[in-house]
């Protein structure tokens, strides 16, 4: 499989990259790790005129803890995120997720920004950022804006990023006390796209009731989405297996899976119920400090 022809540039700075994106709007496509994009180019399902490789743009691959939040550079690789102890200590869900993306080579090169901007309906990170109510910082030649994850994923391979923007940063809030998080992915084989992936985060109050809940689902609709109805149903409820089962059922109500090689839609809906409950259980046990 051979890609079609395109031009390639490797800007040395973000400003230069943004200038190119502005000047070649509609023709230019950002190249980050390449593990999502190159197979599509080789299958000739995508034929951009220009690839803008961000590898020489400095300052986009850091992972920083600020007083307000976590800031993960768009070019931080899955592996770099996987190996970040501070992030994992606060958000175990991050390690759950990063360790299950693709395979080691993919994790060496694939980036969180690339993955979120690519917006494959089966990708893992979007579900996590949705569950954690994180946001994306996007920069264009005209300036910077921050977009909440909820509302960012518009459709299959479509996000709220403009063609002239670069996703520079993923921001995740700090975990409040008594918070647990987990990502559970059902897959046919190690490293494959999920049959369903569920990101869950629970914050408990002193009485053991759920103060807030976040649930992100992947691979069961045109785009990853937040199971808002299930989240709402959990708030104020005692964290308990039965409630998680109910939440799974509600989450399935928001899912719109299609039948494919992972299984028929009916199976996927059942798996939304099952995996959502499992992710919530694991998140709750982590919130309790028992896992």
């Amino acid at each position: 499989m051979i890609p079609g022809q395109f031009e390639y540039v490797r800007p040395g700075s973000l400003d230069e990259a943004l200038r190119i994106l502005r000047d070649r709007e509609g023709e230019a496509k950002i190249l980050s790790g390449g593990y999502s994009l190159l197979p599509l180019l080789k299958l000739r399902l995508a034929q951009p005129a220009l690839l803008v490789d961000l590898q020489a743009v400095g300052g986009l691959d850091g992972i920083a803890r600020t007083d307000d939040d976590w800031r993960i550079g768009g070019r931080a690789t899955h592996r770099r995120i996987l190996e970040h102890d501070g992030l994992a200590a606060e958000w175990p869900i991050i390690r759950d997720t990063a360790g299950g993306i693709g395979d080691p080579q993919v994790r060496n090169w694939g980036t969180i920004g690339g993955s979120c901007a690519h917006a494959d309906p089966g990708s893992d990170w979007p579900a996590v950022v949705l569950a954690l109510r994180g946001s994306f910082t996007c920069r264009s030649a005209g300036g910077e804006r921050t977009l909440a994850a909820r509302g960012f994923f518009l459709d299959t391979f479509q996000t709220a990023i403009d063609a002239t923007e670069v996703l520079t940063e993923v921001r995740l809030p700090h975990a409040p006390g008594r918070t647990g998080s987990a990502y559970v992915k059902l897959e046919r084989r190690a490293g494959d796209f999920a049959t369903v992936g569920v990101a869950a985060v629970l914050t408990l109050d002193d009485s053991g009731r759920i103060a807030s809940a976040g649930i992100g689902l992947t691979a069961v609709a045109e785009t990853p989405f937040a199971a808002t109805d299930a989240e709402a149903a959990l708030v104020g409820v005692v964290a308990h297996d039965e409630a998680f089962g109910v939440a799974g059922g509600i989450a399935a109500g928001q899912a719109r899976p299609t039948s494919d090689s992972h299984g028929p839609a009916e199976y996927k809906l059942a798996m939304v119920r099952e995996i959502t409950a499992r992710a919530l259980r694991l998140a709750a046990s982590r919130a309790h400090g028992t896992a």
Partner: peptide, 13 residues
């Protein structure tokens, strides 16, 4: 190719 490779996205699209 679209049917063969893109099956998981075709119906919705």
């Amino acid at each position: 190719t679209l049917a063969s490779v893109g099956a998981r996205m075709i119906e919705g699209t």
